[in-house]
Amino acid sequence: MERKEVAFRIYRYNPQVDRQPFYDNFKIAVERGITILRALNYIKEHLEPRLTFRAFCQAGICGSCAVRINGVSKLACTTQVWDELTGSGDDPILVEPLNNLPVIRDLVVDIDPVMEKLKQNYSWVRPAIAEGEMGQKEHCVSDGEFEAINAATDCILCGSCYSECSMTEVNPRYISPPVLLKAFRMNNDTRDTLGCERLGQVSGDNGLWDCAHCYKCAEHCVKHIPIVDGIHRLREEMFERHMTRSEGARHAQAFFDDIRSTGRLREATLPLRTLGVVKTLRMVPLAAKMGMKGRTPPFVVKPVPGIDRVRGIYRRLEANRAAKQGGE
């Protein structure tokens, strides 16, 4: 069995005692195949009993052991020490608490903010079955119906995506990826009846349209759930339900309209069409400065050659859509 001395550099902080966080270094002999969680357990048992972290199932199911390993949010129980060795294998492995959440102690963070957001955003099924008939009547979900939400139901609420999210990092009130994923999952559950209401709730301030589509959440989801596809699907649903009065929806609509009219985005009027007059006026000073450098987009955009073909595509697609809606 391959065995190696491995250095760990672990974040320590007890807010009740320590003035500020610090790092502790440990060196332990580790066999290939050992997980980060088992290494942490070893350190706690043999070297530093006060080291605090959270874990339960040790099998990637409960979601409680998520930490940042070498800067990336992961489950300690499914991540192998060997896979985290960098440099010539001698660099210490950095273990830190999740980002974007308050530290309770060492590697343990307070996940209440996530739970609060889940509660605020109807992250459960409101079934069609009347209260009185609950437990007596079945509401079956077919395999085909389940397929649409299958991946999303794998979420174990570990908080890794929350920790990685670019928008949550700069705005703690942002709805956050696991909550958007839940909204997608519930809105596409055939038993649910809350569609519009939930969508209205999640698309408010600090909500659905604030996602910067940086894809960090999906990239680092420990269950490989395509979270951003779920976010996209929610935005599509906003249009399907004609809930298009937000700035985010108007912004998307502008792209759609411009491709039909010229084939090119008309950036000059994009702020106006997204934000309206008042907020656009605030942008005038920067626009004026950019104008002096020749960086303001033109107000008149020449259509691309062959724009008639593009408009033809739009006409036919819209006719198809109208026919489909008429047929429903």
Binding site: Q253, F255, I259, R264, I313
Partner: peptide, 15 residues
């Protein structure tokens, strides 16, 4: 034409 800058598909995935 413009690719739709990761916005077009919200309005219409087919477009």
């Amino acid at each position: 034409t413009c690719c739709g800058g990761s916005n077009l598909d919200y309005v219409s995935p087919d477009h």
